[in-house]
Amino acid sequence: MEKTGFRTRRDQVDAVMRAADVLLRVAATSVVEVEDLVTTPQLRVLVFLSFRGPQNLGAVARELGVHASNATRTCDRLVAAGFVSRRDDPADRRFLQLDLTPRGRELVETVIEHRRRAIADVISNVPADSREAVATAMAAFADAGGGLGTEDGRFTLGLGG
């Protein structure tokens, strides 16, 4: 059943919920590819560092919505696994700066590339004359929700939070 008219707000919400379901399946599938290497909270930290650059533990805790001790344990495991480096923050030596190692960057790129391919497959099933409109609508939706690439956006990439 193809639905082209959205007469009510509920129709609009339902359409976006259906699209969100597709995107969540894409996100979940990409996480499965790396679940033997990192947990979901650890992947969130890696994605956060990838998009925001070096951060201190306080910023990681705020991003995860957890106490600093939880963020410390998560980051300690990422350092031990070789995904994150930790050094004195050049701006304030009282803090440690966390950054991705090449291995951590590669893992994030693997997840993102998986999502790009999966989304490209879905877009290829959209009628060619509607693809630009879909991309424009999705960009507007992401901007309205404070999505990736905005100043106040949280970088979860569908990883909860």
Score class of each variant (00 low, 15 high):
Asp92Pro: 03
Gly149Gln: 04
Gln55Asn: 08
Gly5Ile: 11
Phe48Cys: 11
Gln42Gly: 13
Gly53Gln: 07
Ala20Asp: 12
Leu159Val: 09
Glu35Arg: 11
Lys3Ser: 15
Asp88Ala: 14
Glu132Cys: 02
Met138Pro: 01
Leu57Ser: 11
Leu148Thr: 01
Arg9Ile: 15
Gly145Phe: 03
Ala139Leu: 12
Asp36Leu: 08
Pro41Met: 02
Ala140Gly: 14
Ala15Trp: 02
Thr74Met: 04
Glu109Pro: 12
Asn125Cys: 11
Asp121Cys: 04
Val16Pro: 08
Arg103Ile: 02
Leu148Glu: 00
Arg131Ala: 09
Arg77Asn: 09
Arg52Tyr: 10
Ala19Asn: 10
Arg86Gly: 03
Gly58Arg: 04
Leu49Gln: 05
Glu63Cys: 13
Arg52Ser: 12
Asp143Met: 08
Ala61Met: 09
Ala27Lys: 00
Ala128Gln: 11
Gly65Arg: 06
Phe155Asp: 14
Glu2Gln: 12
Asp36Asn: 04
Glu113Gln: 06
Ile112Trp: 11
Arg117His: 15
Val122Arg: 12
Thr74Lys: 03
Ser124Phe: 05
Ala80Thr: 07
Ala81Trp: 04
Asp76Glu: 14
Gln12Trp: 06
Arg105Trp: 07
Cys75His: 08
Ala81Asp: 15
Met17Pro: 06
Thr136Lys: 10
Ser124His: 13
Arg103Met: 10
Val60Asn: 03
Thr74Asp: 14
Thr72Pro: 00
Gly5Asp: 15
Val22Cys: 00
Ala28Trp: 13
Val108Met: 04
Asp76Trp: 05
Phe6Asn: 12
Arg103Pro: 01
Leu64Asn: 07
Thr156Glu: 03
Asp92Lys: 01
Arg18Phe: 02
Thr156Met: 04
Ala135Met: 13
Ala71Arg: 02
Phe83Pro: 07
Arg9Cys: 13
Arg116Cys: 15
Thr40Phe: 00
Arg93Asp: 09
Pro41Trp: 02
